[in-house]
């Protein structure tokens, strides 16, 4: 592409335009990042709650965390939850998108409208409705199951970790699937018809056409969507927090986000919480790196 170069234009104007945004980001995110490193090297104990300045303790917070098997349980649980949710979301989302290419137009329009509604529902509203559906006393799920002959009268879905995480997964997947469906379907409609026809004339079967024409076309989209999904599912907080509030069990259901929250904001141990938050940041950066590489390549084009 021939790029018109305004080679000798001074940089002052564009830099001035970028300045407000950059300054705000430095103040609201850059400074806390540095502050967090500092916090993670300090001790916040009982004395600090009575106004003593925090003490420097070097890497003790990190040492304590790494030596605590609970942190590893939480990290493992977070990563597992993330992969299960991202996998299910991708599988179901791509499945629905493929189905959409096969259905009658009126069904497809209805499905799109329904998914749009799901996508637009605010997280907190969705959480509360799902809690209502699975409510011990008034929940429609319990009454339907009971009516079908399996006695779920008064069954508490959130009292036990496996069942707790199944509900959480159901809600997270329900909320995330529309994004995957819409992006995948948009990509599928961009597969050129004439290429498919040409492949058909050349004797390629339906499966071969799918594998050699459709898949290569949508692969870049799927890759980006998968990466975003993994990044988003790593930071699930609202869902777990609200379910914990109504379920009561916390220790067996903490993910990294809620763990950091309960350490720092609730417990006042800002040092350990900051150290745990650094884990979360490192984990995010590691998972984000491939996404950034893809975007960087596009930026250079």
């Amino acid at each position: 592409m021939a790029r018109r170069r305004s080679a000798v234009r001074p940089n002052a104007l564009p830099l001035g335009l970028v300045l407000p945004a950059a300054a705000l980001l430095v103040l609201a995110l850059g400074y806390p990042l540095v502050r967090q490193v500092v916090l993670s090297l300090q001790e916040f104990g009982l004395a600090q709650q009575f106004g003593q300045p925090p003490e420097w303790i070097g890497l003790d917070n990190y040492r304590a965390l790494v030596g605590d098997s609970y942190l590893w349980t939480v990290v493992l649980r977070t990563v597992l939850f993330c992969f299960v949710n991202a996998g299910l979301t991708m599988g179901i989302g791509v499945g629905i998108a493929l189905l959409m290419t096969r259905m009658s137009t009126w069904v497809r329009v209805l499905v799109q409208a329904g998914l749009l509604l799901t996508w637009a529902t605010p997280v907190v509203a969705a959480m509360i409705v799902w809690q209502f559906l699975f409510d011990t006393q008034y929940g429609v799920v319990n009454s339907v199951l009971t009516a079908l002959g399996s006695d779920h009268d008064g069954h508490s879905w959130l009292a036990e970790p496996i069942s707790f995480f199944s509900i959480a997964t159901m809600i997270v997947v329900w909320m995330s699937v529309p994004f995957v469906v819409f992006t995948t379907y948009a990509a599928l409609t961009q597969v050129p018809d004439d290429v498919i026809e040409a492949a058909e004339i050349d004797g390629a079967g339906a499966w071969q056409r799918f594998l050699h024409v459709v898949v290569p076309t949508v692969r870049p989209v799927l890759l980006v969507v998968l990466l975003l999904q993994i990044i988003w599912d790593l930071r699930v907080f609202t869902q777990i927090y609200t379910l914990q509030k109504s379920g009561g069990i916390t220790r067996d259901t903490n993910l990294l986000g809620t763990y950091i929250y309960s350490l720092g904001i609730k417990g006042g141990d800002f040092g350990t919480a900051a150290a745990a938050a650094m884990f979360m940041l490192v984990l995010t950066v590691l998972l984000t790196a491939p996404y950034l590489r893809i975007m960087f390549r596009q930026e250079e084009d």
Binding site: F237, I260, I265
Partner: peptide, 11 residues
């Protein structure tokens, strides 16, 4: 990509 939970302690 930075999760809110990664920074809310220091914020």
């Amino acid at each position: 990509m930075i999760p809110a939970e990664g920074l809310f302690i220091s914020q």
